[in-house]
Simulated assay, not measured.
Amino acid sequence: MTLRLTPEQDRALTLLAGAQGSSKHEAAVRAIVAAANRLLADDAVAQLARDVIPGHADLESRIRRARG
């Protein structure tokens, strides 16, 4: 797989790798895993809230708008 980045994205990745003391490849892999973990954790929490909290849909909608 090839990752094509704009010069600005490459600079950001270079800075991230430098801050982590890693290669750009490892920094990209870590960023992907971290993003997936956040997304999956958010989905798990949202599903739990739907199951447990009555009227969660309205609350979830308000939270999403506030994040917006």
Rank of each mutant, 00 (worst) to 15 (best):
residue 2 T to S: 12
residue 2 T to E: 13
residue 5 L to F: 13
residue 7 P to C: 08
residue 7 P to L: 05
residue 7 P to A: 10
residue 9 Q to D: 11
residue 10 D to G: 06
residue 10 D to N: 11
residue 10 D to K: 08
residue 11 R to H: 12
residue 13 L to K: 07
residue 14 T to G: 14
residue 15 L to K: 03
residue 16 L to F: 08
residue 17 A to T: 01
residue 18 G to Q: 00
residue 18 G to D: 03
residue 18 G to E: 02
residue 22 S to M: 10
residue 23 S to N: 05
residue 25 H to S: 09
residue 26 E to Q: 11
residue 27 A to S: 04
residue 28 A to V: 11
residue 28 A to L: 07
residue 28 A to E: 02
residue 28 A to Y: 08
residue 29 V to F: 10
residue 29 V to L: 14
residue 29 V to H: 04
residue 30 R to D: 11
residue 30 R to V: 07
residue 30 R to Y: 10
residue 30 R to H: 09
residue 32 I to E: 10
residue 33 V to P: 02
residue 33 V to D: 09
residue 35 A to C: 11
residue 36 A to L: 13
residue 38 R to S: 12
residue 39 L to Y: 14
residue 40 L to M: 07
residue 41 A to N: 15
residue 43 D to M: 12
residue 43 D to W: 06
residue 44 A to G: 11
residue 44 A to I: 08
residue 45 V to T: 15
residue 45 V to L: 10
residue 45 V to P: 00
residue 46 A to F: 09
residue 46 A to M: 03
residue 46 A to L: 08
residue 47 Q to R: 13
residue 49 A to H: 04
residue 50 R to S: 12
residue 51 D to L: 04
residue 52 V to Q: 05
residue 52 V to S: 12
residue 53 I to G: 00
residue 54 P to A: 14
residue 54 P to I: 10
residue 55 G to M: 03
residue 55 G to D: 03
residue 55 G to H: 00
residue 57 A to K: 08
residue 57 A to F: 06
residue 57 A to W: 04
residue 58 D to K: 11
residue 58 D to C: 05
residue 58 D to A: 14
residue 60 E to T: 00
residue 61 S to I: 13
residue 65 R to G: 02
residue 65 R to C: 04
residue 65 R to T: 13
residue 66 A to Y: 05
residue 66 A to K: 04
residue 67 R to S: 05
residue 67 R to H: 10
residue 68 G to Q: 08
